[in-house]
Amino acid sequence: MYFRDPAELPGPLPTSEEISNAPKSGLSPRRHVWGEGGGMCIVRGIYVVKCDINLTQNKGNALLFIEKHLKIPVPRLYAMYHDPSSGLLHLVMEYIPGVDLESLCSSLAVEVKP
Protein backbone atom coordinates (compact mmCIF):
# COMPACT_ATOMS: atom_id res chain seq x y z
CA MET A 1 0.00 0.00 0.00
CA TYR A 2 1.06 3.64 0.25
CA PHE A 3 1.75 6.01 3.14
CA ARG A 4 3.13 9.51 2.62
CA ASP A 5 6.04 10.59 4.83
CA PRO A 6 4.56 11.77 8.17
CA ALA A 7 6.45 15.08 7.86
CA GLU A 8 4.28 15.88 4.79
CA LEU A 9 0.94 15.25 6.56
CA PRO A 10 -1.27 18.05 7.92
CA GLY A 11 -1.81 15.94 11.06
CA PRO A 12 -1.90 12.33 12.22
CA LEU A 13 -3.70 10.00 9.82
CA PRO A 14 -7.27 9.25 10.88
CA THR A 15 -7.90 6.13 12.90
CA SER A 16 -10.51 3.53 11.93
CA GLU A 17 -12.65 4.80 14.79
CA GLU A 18 -12.45 8.41 13.56
CA ILE A 19 -13.41 7.31 10.07
CA SER A 20 -16.42 5.28 11.19
CA ASN A 21 -17.60 8.08 13.54
CA ALA A 22 -16.95 11.00 11.15
CA PRO A 23 -19.96 13.00 10.03
CA LYS A 24 -20.87 12.25 6.45
CA SER A 25 -21.94 15.84 5.70
CA GLY A 26 -20.30 18.46 3.51
CA LEU A 27 -20.18 16.13 0.52
CA SER A 28 -22.56 15.83 -2.37
CA PRO A 29 -25.97 14.45 -1.32
CA ARG A 30 -25.47 11.10 -3.01
CA ARG A 31 -22.34 10.52 -0.92
CA HIS A 32 -23.86 11.09 2.52
CA VAL A 33 -24.56 7.40 3.05
CA TRP A 34 -21.89 5.16 4.53
CA GLY A 35 -23.28 1.74 3.75
CA GLU A 36 -21.89 -1.77 3.67
CA GLY A 37 -20.26 -1.04 0.32
CA GLY A 38 -18.33 1.98 1.63
CA GLY A 39 -18.63 5.71 1.40
CA MET A 40 -16.83 8.99 1.89
CA CYS A 41 -16.33 11.26 4.88
CA ILE A 42 -14.39 14.28 6.13
CA VAL A 43 -12.17 13.75 9.18
CA ARG A 44 -10.99 16.67 11.34
CA GLY A 45 -11.62 19.08 8.44
CA ILE A 46 -8.28 18.11 6.87
CA TYR A 47 -8.83 14.66 5.36
CA VAL A 48 -11.32 13.10 2.98
CA VAL A 49 -11.47 9.34 3.37
CA LYS A 50 -12.98 7.34 0.57
CA CYS A 51 -13.64 3.63 0.67
CA ASP A 52 -15.87 1.69 -1.62
CA ILE A 53 -16.43 -1.93 -2.56
CA ASN A 54 -15.52 -1.05 -6.17
CA LEU A 55 -12.55 1.20 -5.35
CA THR A 56 -9.22 0.02 -6.74
CA GLN A 57 -5.61 1.07 -6.30
CA ASN A 58 -5.79 2.59 -9.79
CA LYS A 59 -7.47 5.72 -8.41
CA GLY A 60 -4.77 6.22 -5.78
CA ASN A 61 -2.00 5.51 -8.27
CA ALA A 62 -3.57 8.01 -10.70
CA LEU A 63 -3.49 10.73 -8.01
CA LEU A 64 0.19 10.01 -7.34
CA PHE A 65 1.03 10.05 -11.06
CA ILE A 66 -0.75 13.36 -11.65
CA GLU A 67 0.97 14.95 -8.66
CA LYS A 68 4.40 13.81 -9.86
CA HIS A 69 4.16 14.31 -13.62
CA LEU A 70 1.38 16.79 -14.48
CA LYS A 71 0.37 20.27 -13.44
CA ILE A 72 -3.27 19.44 -12.82
CA PRO A 73 -4.62 20.37 -9.37
CA VAL A 74 -5.85 17.24 -7.59
CA PRO A 75 -6.13 16.37 -3.90
CA ARG A 76 -2.92 14.94 -2.48
CA LEU A 77 -3.05 11.27 -1.55
CA TYR A 78 -1.79 10.75 2.00
CA ALA A 79 -2.47 7.03 2.42
CA MET A 80 -3.91 4.04 0.55
CA TYR A 81 -4.52 0.81 2.46
CA HIS A 82 -6.96 -2.04 3.06
CA ASP A 83 -8.75 -1.71 6.37
CA PRO A 84 -8.42 -5.04 8.21
CA SER A 85 -11.88 -4.84 9.81
CA SER A 86 -13.85 -4.15 6.61
CA GLY A 87 -11.43 -5.39 3.96
CA LEU A 88 -12.21 -2.25 1.95
CA LEU A 89 -9.53 -0.15 0.26
CA HIS A 90 -9.23 3.27 1.92
CA LEU A 91 -7.91 6.39 0.21
CA VAL A 92 -6.97 9.16 2.64
CA MET A 93 -6.75 12.40 0.69
CA GLU A 94 -6.39 16.13 1.17
CA TYR A 95 -9.66 17.89 1.93
CA ILE A 96 -10.11 20.95 -0.27
CA PRO A 97 -13.10 23.02 0.87
CA GLY A 98 -15.40 24.39 -1.80
CA VAL A 99 -18.55 23.73 -3.77
CA ASP A 100 -18.71 20.56 -5.83
CA LEU A 101 -19.59 20.68 -9.51
CA GLU A 102 -22.64 18.46 -9.03
CA SER A 103 -24.38 21.06 -6.84
CA LEU A 104 -23.51 23.90 -9.25
CA CYS A 105 -24.51 22.11 -12.44
CA SER A 106 -28.16 23.20 -12.50
CA SER A 107 -27.17 26.89 -12.28
CA LEU A 108 -24.53 26.78 -15.05
CA ALA A 109 -25.18 27.95 -18.58
CA VAL A 110 -25.31 25.19 -21.18
CA GLU A 111 -22.13 26.55 -22.84
CA VAL A 112 -20.01 25.97 -19.72
CA LYS A 113 -21.39 22.62 -18.59
CA PRO A 114 -19.00 19.68 -18.84
Rank of each mutant, 00 (worst) to 15 (best):
M1T: 09
K71M: 00
E111K: 14
L77E: 08
L64N: 08
F65V: 04
N21F: 10
R44Q: 12
S103F: 01
G45W: 01
N58T: 10
D5W: 04
K71G: 02
M93Q: 14
H82W: 02
V92Q: 08
W34A: 13
K113L: 15
Y2W: 00
L108W: 02
G26I: 07
T56R: 09
V43Y: 10
N58A: 14
P84M: 05
L91N: 06
V112A: 10
D83I: 11
A22Q: 13
K50I: 02
G35E: 13
L108T: 01
H69R: 09
K50V: 09
H69G: 03
A7M: 04
G38M: 07
S20P: 02
R30A: 12
L13Q: 07
P75D: 01
Y78K: 04
S85P: 01
S16E: 14
W34P: 01
G11R: 09
V43L: 12
L64D: 08
S107P: 00
P12H: 07
A7C: 05
C41V: 15
V43M: 05
A22M: 08
S20E: 10
G39W: 00
T15Y: 08
G60M: 05
L27K: 04
R31I: 02
S16I: 01
R44E: 07
G60L: 04
Y78F: 15
I96H: 06
N58S: 13
A62R: 05
K59S: 08
H82I: 08
S16L: 12
A62F: 05
R76Y: 04
K50S: 08
G39Y: 00
P75I: 12
F3Y: 07
D83R: 06
P23H: 04
V43F: 03
I19S: 00
L88M: 14
A109C: 06
A109E: 15
H90F: 14
E111G: 07
L108K: 00
G35V: 02
L101E: 03
G45N: 09
R30C: 09
P6S: 12
N61L: 12
H82D: 06
I19Y: 01
Y81V: 02
V48W: 03
M40N: 03
G45Q: 02
P84G: 05
G11H: 11
K24G: 05
W34Y: 14
G37Q: 11
F3W: 04
L101C: 11
V112T: 13
E18L: 12
A62D: 13
Q57P: 02
V99H: 02
E17V: 14
H69F: 14
I42V: 15
P73E: 04
G98N: 07
G26D: 07
L88I: 03
R4E: 15
V74M: 01
